[in-house]
């Protein structure tokens, strides 16, 4: 089972987790910039954080053969802190980096006017940098927050096919499916979504535009729940190709829209293993493209 975790906060995880993830089949991941639990007091603190997302974390992941990519943004919670507003000015520099495959996590936390402003400004950056966007949905007042997020996306001019709306559940799925955006599900030990519930959603809605992630972070979470979801799919009668679509080809297709995804030759979206072309460049960017 090859796994691409499209949303996991490795900064908050140990190197042992990388080792266990590699053993479980995780070969690539995307680490979105987010809130670290402790509020930051200045934009400079974000510089160090973003630097690690394009420096140290890819190195750490590489020790276990895992390809690390990032999404960069000012998260919704800290969008409300005036001390962090200058982060918006830093973003363009990071959105030019090779490993940055989307703008995110953007979206709503408490749905304040400040969040409105920062959300819209960052979707405009996604348009300007020709990058997809990862939209977090709020934990409180989620259904209305999701509706409002979809309205902001529609206003932004960003193609819905280049947007994933994340942390969905049974209540919010239909809204997002109808919008044309991608659907993200964070499989947690107890809260957001569980493997059995996820399997039911896949039965109901199919595998198209569905992204399954562990969203593992500093809270109670488990980086191997992507694998557990794949196993639950198989036990429920999905075949290996369905699992590969959800856990590998879908995230490759979504983040591949950045033109910056780098995977080994045998791990491209549709090609079978073992067709590496000698002379293609190291890193074997299979979804090439310019910026």
């Amino acid at each position: 089972m090859r796994i691409f975790d499209p949303h996991i906060h490795m900064t908050s995880r140990t190197t042992d987790d990388y080792e266990r993830m590699a053993a479980a089949g995780v070969r690539a991941l995307v680490e979105p910039a987010f809130w670290l639990g402790q509020p930051r007091t200045s934009a400079a603190s974000f510089v160090d954080y973003f630097d690690s997302l394009v420096g140290w974390e890819p190195f750490r992941a590489g020790q276990f053969g895992i390809r690390h990519h990032a999404t960069i943004a000012l998260n919704p919670k800290e969008a409300n802190d005036p001390r962090c507003r200058e982060v918006l000015d830093l973003l363009p520099r990071y959105l030019d980096k090779d490993g940055v495959v989307a703008v995110g996590e953007v979206g709503y936390d408490s749905m304040t006017p400040e969040e409105d402003e920062v959300f819209a400004a960052q979707l405009a950056l996604a348009v300007a940098h020709e990058l997809p966007a990862l939209v977090h949905t709020p934990h409180r007042d989620k259904a209305r927050g999701t509706e409002r997020s979809l309205a902001v996306v529609a206003e932004s001019g960003l193609d819905p096919g280049r947007v994933v709306i994340d942390h969905l559940n049974e209540v919010t799925v239909p809204l997002v499916r109808d919008s044309g955006c991608w659907l993200g599900f964070s499989i947690y030990p107890e809260t957001k979504m569980s493997p059995p519930r996820m399997v039911e959603l896949l039965r109901t809605y199919g595998t198209e535009r569905m992204l399954v992630n562990s969203a593992a972070d500093w809270g109670r979470s488990d980086p191997l729940l992507t694998r557990a979801t794949g196993e639950a799919m198989l036990a429920a009668g999905f075949d290996a190709d369905d699992v590969d679509r959800v856990l590998w080809r879908n995230p490759v297709e979504f983040y591949g829209q950045s033109g910056r995804l780098e995977l080994a030759d045998d791990e491209s979206a549709g090609e079978p293993a073992g067709e590496a072309t000698p002379g293609t460049f190291e890193g074997n960017s299979i979804l090439r493209g310019g910026s």
Binding site: D98, R260, F281, G283, G290
Partner: peptide, 12 residues
């Protein structure tokens, strides 16, 4: 400078 790897490749 940031785009050079995407434009010029990364092979030896």
């Amino acid at each position: 400078f940031a785009a050079a790897g995407r434009r010029c490749g990364r092979t030896p």
